[in-house]
Structures are given as C-alpha cells and as structure tokens.
C-alpha cells in the first residue's frame, strides 16, 4: 500500500513537472477552473435572494452540504479522475503497456497525466465549506464527524469513480454512464436531499450510497432532525459505507483486469 502510494506520487510528480513547461496556460486553466466552479455556487446564492430556504435548509446549511460534497469530489477527481479515460487507454493500447510494468495497474491508470490544476476545484469548494463552517455551532463531536465525513466522502467518491470506470473493461464507450453517477452524484449531493422525491434519497441510501457522502453526517453537524426519520446512528455510518464500497470496488477492479481482452493486433 505504502509502495503503491509512493509510486503514485513519483509518477504524478513527473506529470506536474512536465506541465510546468507551459506556466501561462497552466495558470489560465487553474483560474478558469476556479471561476467555472465558482459560478455554480453563485447560482445557489442568487437563488437564495428570492427564497428563504431550500427544502427546509438555509443558505449556510446548503453551503455546508455543497462544500462538503465539493471538497470530497474534487479531491477524488484529482486523485483518480483520470480513470474515466480507461476505455481510451484500452483502445490506444496504453493499458497493455501499463500491464507489463512493475507498478500496480490502478496506480498507473490514475497517475497518468496527473493534473495538479484540478486543485482549483478543491480550493473553490474548500472556500465555500470554510465560510459555511463559521455558522456551525461547534462541539467536539461535530468537529470529529466533520473530519470523518470529509475523509469518508473522499473515499466514497474515489471508489465510485473506480468501480464505475470498470464498466469500460466490458464496454469501452461507457464513460458517460459513469459520469452520470460521479458528476451527477456530486451535483445531487450539493443540495439538501429533501428537495428531491423520497425515491431519490432511498436510492442514494441503499443502491448507490452517495447520501453518506454528506447528507447524513451533515444533519448531525448542523443539529438537524432527519426530515425523513432515519435513526440517528445512520449519521455516523459514512466510514463503514466507505470501507464497504472500497471492498466492492477492489473486487470489481480485479475481475475487470482478469477478464481484460486487450485490443486486436
């Protein structure tokens, strides 16, 4: 594990060094990324100029949900987001090359063309979260759960990225399907889940458990009753869900690699 991470850092560092060859375009991408994602939250802020609450949640509370999901998603995207190009790597034969190197395949796929500029998204979401945190009534257990939430949420998004990308082992052109759940999941969890029909919340609790990214723990941190009446212990369940997702993802990944068919020639 430590070795895998070391390799990840080494390969990523090389890409960072390579991208420094074009500093102007690098900074433009960073600033552009910051602005594009920033506009998203400005939209929510404008919405609140016309309404008092969204699904029963104030602007500060929505900002906490938005920031929590955003930070976790952006870190996951920074670390493993490249995996959405698995199909392309298969098609170009890049995966064959990676398979004959003495580094775990997953590390190579995720670190390939690592782009540090994606940090701009982490920064943007982090700012919103930081602002929301100034309105939270802090207690030690709330601090603890916030930290647990951010770690678990990052792990959950990372696992979902990888597991869904594995579909590309079977159907090369399925990146869009995965995007619907990863990017889509990020968008949905940016809002209080009470704004959606209750089926959405059920699906995001029991099918693809993205409600554990921020919804349940945030209810505790914000001191809110669960509007749908789920027991209070679900609010501490995110780390368990994250661990379970990692186990399932590793299984899916291994299965995918073992039945990999390569390309012709």
């Amino acid at each position: 594990m430590v070795e895998a991470l070391t390799r990840y850092v080494q390969i990523s560092a090389l890409w960072v060094r390579a991208s420094r060859a074009y500093p102007v375009s690098w900074w433009m991408l960073v600033i552009g990324g910051f602005l594009i994602t920033g506009v998203e939250f400005v939209g929510i802020w404008i919405l609140f100029q016309n309404i008092d609450n969204l699904g029963g949640f104030s602007l500060h509370e929505v900002a906490f949900l938005y920031g929590g999901s955003g930070v976790a998603f952006a870190i996951a995207d920074l670390l493993v987001g490249r995996i959405e190009r698995l199909g392309q790597m298969i098609r170009l034969g890049k995966l064959d090359q990676m398979l004959v190197r003495p580094v775990p395949l997953l590390v190579q796929v995720c670190a390939d063309e690592f782009a540090l500029r994606r940090l701009s998204r982490v920064a943007q979401a982090g700012l919103v979260l930081g602002w929301a945190c100034t309105y939270v009534d802090w207690t030690p257990s709330r601090v603890l759960l916030t930290v647990l939430m951010l770690v678990a949420a990052t792990v959950i998004f990372t696992a979902v990225f990888v597991a869904l990308a594995c579909i590309q082992f079977w159907t090369i052109d399925s990146a869009e399907v995965a995007n619907a759940f990863t990017y889509g999941g990020n968008t949905v969890t940016s809002y209080p889940l009470t704004v959606f029909p209750s089926e959405v919340l059920k699906a995001m609790t029991f099918v693809l458990p993205l409600a554990f990214v921020n919804w349940y723990p945030s209810l505790y941190v914000l001191g809110r009753e669960d509007p749908l009446g789920y027991p209070a212990w679900t609010q501490w369940l995110s780390p368990v869900v994250a661990a379970a997702l990692v186990a399932v993802t590793m299984l899916v990944w291994r299965t995918g690699v073992r039945q990999y068919r390569s390309t012709g020639s």
Binding site: R7, I11, L14, L92, G93, V100, R101, P102
Partner: peptide, 29 residues
C-alpha cells in the same frame, strides 16, 4: 522482461525522451 510493441509506443507522447527514461528508472526501481 521487456516488451516492445512495434505499432505503439511505451513512451509518454508529450514528454522528452529523457523524461520518459527517468520515469522508467523510478517505475522499475
């Protein structure tokens, strides 16, 4: 083992040859 696929490259497309070689030194230790 070493593998060369004639129709494809092992090297990183956008990097100078030297950088690819340096990276491989790290990859293979």
């Amino acid at each position: 083992i070493g593998v060369v696929f004639g129709q494809r490259t092992t090297l990183w497309w956008d990097l100078p040859l030297k950088d690819s070689f340096d990276l491989l030194q790290k990859v293979y230790r």
